[in-house]
Design a protein around this nucleic acid. Structure first.
Length: 189
DNA sequence: CGAACGATTAGCT
DNA sequence: GCTAATCGTTCGA
């Protein structure tokens, strides 16, 4: 039987809870993607979050309705994908950091210029490149084309740790991963 | 208007 | 482990 597709109401949860719940779900963009194996939570009370300083032109989508995509450019080079969650106006989101590639392997390999499944989607920038995430997807609903987010079909063992690549609140354990997955951007310890 | 700074990655030591 | 690449956003003058 086919897994259930997540709808906006499924995203009405605090960021850490949402980030935990997304592990094991499947993310597809135009039919290309895989299982979510790594996430990070951010919210308005968090000094490391883009939403911390309040709404701006860049982060306004984070303050809009939950269940949408927040896309931003990182280090002037990479596109990263977040899911807006919690209640509208809360500025909460979940950064999708890594996938286990499942569908559209050939397309992802071509976009990444690789054939090693390990490195296709194991990192937020790599994932963005493999799924062709660009700024035109910013603000789009996750339950409409080209997105598809499918519920996990069974429970998964989740590991928790501190977030990566930030200087503020680096000790907050808001990074979540699928235990033992070889597709994590970095191992948990 | 200028300057500093990344929610990163690849490549080299 | 260290650093360059590269550019939009943000903040101060």
């Amino acid at each position: 039987m086919k897994p259930r597709r997540l709808k906006p109401a499924d995203f009405l949860r605090p960021a850490p809870e949402m980030a935990h719940a997304l592990i094991g779900c499947v993310l597809l963009v135009d039919g290309v993607g895989g299982r979510i194996v790594e996430t990070e939570a951010y919210d308005m009370a968090d000094p490391a979050s883009h939403s911390f300083t309040g709404p701006t032109t860049r982060n306004q989508v984070m303050f809009g309705p939950p269940g949408r995509a927040y896309v931003y450019r990182s280090y002037g080079i990479h596109w990263c994908l977040n899911f807006v969650c919690d209640e509208e106006g809360h500025g909460a989101g979940v950064l999708i950091r890594a996938l286990e590639p499942l569908q559209g392997m050939a397309v992802m390999c071509e976009r990444r210029g690789l054939h090693a499944p390990r490195l296709l989607c194991s990192g937020p920038g790599r994932l963005g490149q493999a799924l062709a995430i660009e700024h035109d997807l910013n603000g789009l609903r996750l339950d409409h084309k080209p997105f598809e987010v499918l519920a996990a079909e069974r429970p998964h063992e989740v590991v928790v740790g501190p977030r990566i690549g930030i200087s503020k609140a680096a000790d907050v354990p808001w990074r979540f991963g699928l235990a033992g997955s070889p597709h994590l951007s970095r191992p948990f310890r």
